Simulated scan of single mutants.
Amino acid sequence: MDWDDLRIFLAVARAESLSGAGRRLAMDASTIGRRIARLEQAIGAVLFAKTPQGYALTAEGERLIAPAEATEQAAAAASEATRSEAGLTGQLRIGAPDGCANYLLPQIARDLCAAHPGLEVQILALPRVVNLTKREADMAVAVSAPDTGRLVAQRLTDYRLHLAAHQDYLDRHPPIRDIADLKGHGLIGYIPDMIFDRELDYLSETGTQTAAITSNSVSVQMQAIRAGAGLGIVHDFAIPFAPGVRRVLEDKISLKRSFWLIRHADDRASRRLTLLAELVAQAVRAEVSRLQAEVSAAPHRLA
């Protein structure tokens, strides 16, 4: 059995479509369809059932997943054995919620690529949990550790969030000295039914009212705050990127969360990915610390 056929099989199984697999492999969907048909003919079994939702694995396809992934790991190990020790090269895809993806990972990717010129870093920003089982990414930063799947989690660092508003908004409204003063103010937060992790349910934890403007994106929430639309819970590490945004009631509303680095359990055998995971972990810790220190050191109004 040809490893390249198995590689295509895994891509279709993970993407659940020929077009999705084609994008991952930079191949034409019709070519992928022919290769899958060839593989099915070679082993004498139907591997996928076409449904309205896409390509679903049959029972025979499910049984092929484990040996195909074992072959994939062996091929990766062989590639690593022949790769130069001079530096880390190739593609690295990191998945993350958009707060981390927007305000931390760009600087981290810049420094990784500068230190390792042959490295290509892809940042996958998603308003949901990254699916490592389907190999959407090589590793993911998450706000909580997974409790299902063949995944391993490494705690990276704690970070802080505070209620914040733009100075223009604060200047146009009465002073906010206590939580009770928030009554009547416009709040900005997540769309309630699109909160994909309980750790993101910020407003309910603060006891404040329902938000008037909501989005599933942290960046959109921050842009609304910058536009003077109201107050919202923001990451301290994002504030340096938003001139004019100030923390409010920081002695009364202060949230602590943690970042975790998630990897597929099988990838621990990869020396390359292990080294890259260590570099990403160190960089996330350092960048969160640097940006939070910058916010704490800067003068700001409590409102």
Rank of each mutant, 00 (worst) to 15 (best):
V245Y: 00
H116Q: 01
G149S: 03
P243Q: 14
I43F: 08
Q41R: 14
G189E: 06
R246D: 14
G118L: 05
L119V: 09
R38N: 14
L156W: 05
H173D: 01
V280Q: 11
I8F: 05
T157C: 01
I94A: 00
D158F: 07
P174S: 07
E120L: 10
W3D: 12
V248I: 14
A125D: 05
R247S: 13
Q209S: 14
A74G: 00
A75T: 13
K134F: 07
Q41L: 15
P97Y: 02
R263A: 12
A13D: 01
Q122S: 15
R301E: 13
Q292P: 02
G189F: 08
E69Y: 04
V46R: 11
D181R: 08
E136Q: 12
A277K: 00
F9Q: 05
A76I: 13
P146I: 12
R290P: 06
R268V: 15
A224M: 15
L119M: 06
L231I: 11
A21L: 11
F9H: 02
L112K: 10
R24I: 12
E287C: 06
D111S: 12
A42K: 15
F241N: 11
D251M: 14
T208Q: 06
L156E: 05
A96P: 03
E40W: 08
F259P: 04
I179L: 09
A59R: 00
M222F: 04
D193P: 11
E250H: 14
D266I: 15
A29E: 14
E40Q: 10
L255R: 01
G33M: 11
I94G: 00
P192R: 15
D111N: 14
F259T: 01
L275M: 10
A229T: 15
F196H: 09
G87E: 01
V288R: 03
R272M: 08
A49L: 15
R83M: 02
Y55E: 08
L203Q: 09
T89L: 09
G244W: 07
R268Y: 13
L126G: 09
Y159S: 04
A42Y: 12
S296L: 15
R268Q: 12
L132A: 09
P52S: 14
Y103P: 03
R177D: 08
T148A: 06
E69A: 06
R257H: 09
Q154I: 11
L104V: 05
W260V: 03
I65G: 06
A137N: 04
Y190A: 10
